[in-house]
Nucleic acid binder design. Sequence first.
DNA 1: CCTTGACCCTATAGTTACTATAGACCCCAC
DNA 2: GTGGGGTCTATAGTAACTATAGGGTCAAGG
Lengths: 133, 133
Amino acid sequence: MSHGTSIGGLAKATGTKVVTIRYYEKIGLLPEPPRTSGNYRTYDASHRERLHFIRRCRDLGFTLEQVRELLNLSKKTDRDCAAVDRLALDHLAEIERKIADLKRLEKELRRLSDCCQGGRIGDCRIIEALSAS
Amino acid sequence: MSHGTSIGGLAKATGTKVVTIRYYEKIGLLPEPPRTSGNYRTYDASHRERLHFIRRCRDLGFTLEQVRELLNLSKKTDRDCAAVDRLALDHLAEIERKIADLKRLEKELRRLSDCCQGGRIGDCRIIEALSAS
DNA sequence: CCTTGACCCTATAGTTACTATAGACCCCAC
DNA sequence: GTGGGGTCTATAGTAACTATAGGGTCAAGG
């Protein structure tokens, strides 16, 4: 007997903004829900689960295209799940690359900032270091 | 007697794409250079240095707005360089935050991926874990 | 002299994942 | 019946470019 939720209710239930839900619908990640007589969207548990899945993937840093693919894969229940694992591993590799990049930046920025002794900008080592090749 | 470089030459010299140089000009990060009779842009050493500075900041992950600010600061040579240092430190803090975030994701994704035992998608632990709250 | 190819010009639209705005409609309580 | 909150559509804006279309310029080779 679960009567439908309004878009605001779904938003609250999933920690998503209303506009974002409409956006997901527009790009085809969420199906168009039925409407009330007053043209309001009404959602049920399956919508809620799907949106929850999307948000969880997004929280883990998957792109919307990856989410789309995961959603497609999750429907093909009798297929080999290697494709799912590959997607996860690819994403993991990318995150590791990003971490490595950021650590390199961190090191260099720290070195940069350590140069600052106070004083006038004309003598600023940071500006100088940024200018250097 | 350094005669000017064409936009392509500047691009090559700084490892920047031609379109990106024009883009920087459009948003006011690079000054409009003089033109040849044939309406080609011509750049000199000062342009090259400024672009180099911009690219170096970008490589270090500063946003274009931060670069704009650094460029402004670097002109005010007799001001206190605390502002420069603050910008660098703010940026450093943000990078550290990002690293922490990504490490958290990495851990969770690794846990996710470790679940995969092969088999059919219907039984896939990854999909399951993504669905779980 | 003319053509060919590499380079350059402008202006516009597309990318990612939303966010913000405007102007209108619906619904419930008082 | 009126107020306020929620909802509707459509459009434009964000960061930092990238891509495309449709043309102009220039130096070299035939």
